[in-house]
Design a protein around this nucleic acid. Structure first.
Length: 135
DNA sequence: GCCAACGTTGGC
DNA sequence: GCCAACGTTGGC
């Protein structure tokens, strides 16, 4: 089972909205690199939700409930979406500055390419993130 | 509010 | 197919 990090601007859609609504169609990804990553997502994978803007922190966990499929509202086979359900909020949020300084997390795409909205996390990345989030 | 980094578009 | 101009994202 793989892990990914999805970014969202909390004033548009926050992790709390996902918790309240119990499920979401993760739509609106148009960047080609992000779409390539999104097509690699599978049902059952773990997703770390990251808030951009004022928060700049990983805030919660979600699980993929449906494999990627084309956005039914767009009619474009390349513009895929996935369905998510919320898991727990992180006990401790992981700030971008922590990502940048942590010896494990500094190799995430989040640090390397600040504009990428969907990116894979290695097993080591996820393990380290969960370790920091529960500490 | 600014700007760096990256993508996209369109003229050639 | 190249690249200049423009647009967007997101951190600062």
């Amino acid at each position: 089972m793989a892990a990914f990090l999805f970014k969202t601007e909390p004033s548009d859609y926050a992790f709390a909205d996902l918790v309240r609504e119990k499920r979401v169609v993760w739509e609106g990804v148009s960047n080609n690199t992000a779409l390539i990553h999104l097509r690699g997502v599978k049902k059952g994978d773990t997703v770390v939700i990251y808030h951009t803007g004022a928060e700049k922190s990983a805030v919660g966990l979600a699980t993929v409930t449906k494999d990627p499929y084309p956005d039914p509202t767009l009619g474009d086979e390349k513009r895929v979406v996935v369905d998510l359900k919320p898991d727990a909020a992180l006990a401790k949020r992981i700030s971008l500055s922590t990502f940048k300084t942590d010896t494990v997390l500094r190799s995430t795409e989040l640090v390397r390419n600040s504009r990428l909205s969907v990116m894979p996390l290695s097993a080591a990345h996820l393990r380290r993130l969960l370790e920091l989030a529960s500490a």
